[in-house]
């Protein structure tokens, strides 16, 4: 049984159907990358999984638990098992780094404070921000903020980590520090779904790549399969554009 199974997932913004029947699965320890042109619905997949947008139909199952996005208890269960890192970091502006990382473990998971803080310190060390515990988000660079956001998501000990274009808002010279962190997580065996435009990075770390266009999955395969020998016309066009450089 796959760790996460998504079946015929559909979602709309008003009259516009942005997800038109998406099905895929993720095994434990896999890093699955969602790629495709902007507006193809990649980010919406992650938003629907986190219940930030409601699906109109479809099935989502984590291990043996099926998620009903109409029920708040079920939504809580989904959010309990997954964590998301946003493109714009979305750190809480009114809290320092340490509070950002420890808020949910303390208040929501109700884990013991000493343990939570120790774990937070370890995570911040791992993302290379040992000396920034007391800094506020607006005192950090974009790359630093994004690494805090990753630490904040990991502090919840999620089974699946969702990464939504986490480097798109960063200046080019800050991209690598964030990608390195994600690479380390992949090496540790963290299950991740990554929406990204960094094709070089995807090729290097992804176990599987899913190419989307206009709310549908066009093609799935290993990075080598998709990048070097795409089967469908749309995938060929897309990869020839993004891999040219």
């Amino acid at each position: 049984m796959p760790h996460l199974a998504v079946e015929d997932l559909r979602a709309s913004y008003g009259a516009l159907e942005v997800l038109r029947g998406i099905s895929f699965s993720v095994e434990k320890g896999e890093l699955v990358a969602l790629v495709g042109p902007s507006g193809s619905g990649k980010s919406t997949v992650l938003r629907v999984l986190m219940a930030l947008n409601p699906p109109s139909s479809g099935r989502v199952q984590i291990d043996d638990i099926s998620i009903d996005y109409g029920k708040s208890g079920s939504v809580r269960a989904a959010r309990d098992r997954m964590a998301v890192v946003f493109q714009q970091y979305n750190l809480f502006q009114n809290m320092n780094v340490m509070d950002n990382v420890t808020l949910a473990p303390r208040k929501i998971k109700k884990w013991p404070v000493a343990e939570v803080e120790e774990n937070a310190r370890a995570l911040l060390a791992k993302v290379g921000l040992t000396d920034k515990h007391d800094a506020y988000p607006d005192e950090l660079s974009g790359g630093q903020q994004q690494r805090v956001a990753i630490a904040r998501a990991l502090a919840l000990k999620p089974e699946i980590l969702l990464l939504d274009e986490v480097t798109s808002a960063l200046d080019p010279e800050l991209v690598n520090e964030v990608l390195d962190t994600i690479g380390e997580l992949a090496a540790d065996g963290m299950t991740m779904i990554l929406v990204s435009h960094e094709m070089g990075f995807v090729r290097e770390v992804a176990s599987r790549v899913i190419m989307m266009d206009a709310g549908e999955i066009i093609e799935t395969g290993t990075p080598a399969e998709l990048f070097d020998a795409p089967k469908s016309q749309r995938a060929k066009q897309f990869f020839s554009k993004v891999l040219r450089h």
């Binding site: 986190m50 219940a51 930030l52 809580r76 959010r79 309990d80 964590a83 998301v84 946003f86 714009q88 979305n90 750190l91 809480f92 502006q93 009114n94 808020l103 949910a104 208040k107 929501i108 919840l156």
Partner: peptide, 25 residues
């Protein structure tokens, strides 16, 4: 709105999100 979304994605309730994240800002 992103601040609210980040909080909700971490399972903060609407009340917790309002008092801990939105109001202070």
């Amino acid at each position: 709105r992103e601040q609210v979304e980040a909080a909700r994605a971490m399972n903060l309730s609407r009340f917790q999100t309002t008092t801990q994240i939105v109001l202070p800002q």
